[in-house]
Design a protein around this nucleic acid. Sequence first.
DNA 1: GGGTATTAGTCAACATGTTGGATAGTGGTT
DNA 2: AACCACTATCCAACATGTTGACTAATACCC
Lengths: 195, 195
Amino acid sequence: MSLSYALLGLLSGDRPMNGYAIKALFDEAISHVWQAKLSQIYRELDALEAKGLLVSSIEEQRDRPSKRLYRATEEGKKAFLDWLGSVPESYASPKRDEFMLRLFFGSLAGPELVAREFRGFLGHMREHRASFENLHSHLAERFPGDPAMERADRICREDRYCEFIRRRAVLLAEASIAWAEECLAELEAEGDGRA
Amino acid sequence: MSLSYALLGLLSGDRPMNGYAIKALFDEAISHVWQAKLSQIYRELDALEAKGLLVSSIEEQRDRPSKRLYRATEEGKKAFLDWLGSVPESYASPKRDEFMLRLFFGSLAGPELVAREFRGFLGHMREHRASFENLHSHLAERFPGDPAMERADRICREDRYCEFIRRRAVLLAEASIAWAEECLAELEAEGDGRA
DNA sequence: GGGTATTAGTCAACATGTTGGATAGTGGTT
DNA sequence: AACCACTATCCAACATGTTGACTAATACCC
């Protein structure tokens, strides 16, 4: 699946990374594209190393716990590039949206409850949109002296594809906000008329 | 989690349903909100019955395999309504988008490959959008004589919240299409200039 | 000196999702 | 007659994702 390719991709560069830093990178840069928990990342790194697609080495640090640095083997890089060049099975991402499911049962909940949920959703989406406007990743600050993190930070700021991704996130957030405002207005107009 | 509440919600009405029909309902009406495989649905129905939230009965059919009809118990209905009235933990749905992940590694893939993926994505999204324009669910046709399916069909057509959901799906699809067209145009403009 | 936060990694258990096959009758196609 | 598609249920195995706990060192605050 894709998580392993994401890891291989991140570790295909010349700068090795440890699990903890990868998690930070996921959270700051990839979280609206792909999410993963720390324990999942570690497990996956283990599995990839067992398959010979990654190798790891321990780096001792003076003032901190020592860390295990991973890098892709030649085989790992090849596996990643093969995946990148392959045709994706599907362009549809799996849908599992609790808010929408609740909305589906809206008639059983009643308009007031639904309106409340819409307000919560709007709050969330507005925050979400704002988070793109004033965001630059803090990876370099959080991992001072880590070349992999400095590079990642720079890429997130400069890379055109990262910019594409950011633009889409903003557009989708705006579409969702406009939609929710319209639905809420409809619900409230009716509520006023009745109550 | 939410799948069990989705099932309880569907089975809280006065019309019992069997697993196969529930799967069809998921596919036709809820698929862009929540997806589930047949085996998962059966397993979940089992678990809910074991907890006393559902009861089942076998209905023999002349010309077809007999089916197991589920309906919610009073306890099940209560559990569903409690969930519906509760505040959702999060309005963010888990993100796991393969296409976006590939795009994140765009610089490693190169503009031609990325452009190809964008074309695939556009094809998918245009189909997706079109599927809302000429769609009315065929549940009643597929399950002739099944009152639960006739009702579900009608609700999907008439219910305002289903209409909200449909509208959002269309808006998001349109935003994605506009975004992808713009990105693709940028990539192609550059490709022409160089090639 | 004690509590808490941060950095770093590991593990067990559980929850959820996916794949594929077994079973079984009906109806239609080649 | 052989094969496939549809309706229907169930199960085992595996893959993936989530939660929470545990270890350990350092730093920072009170």
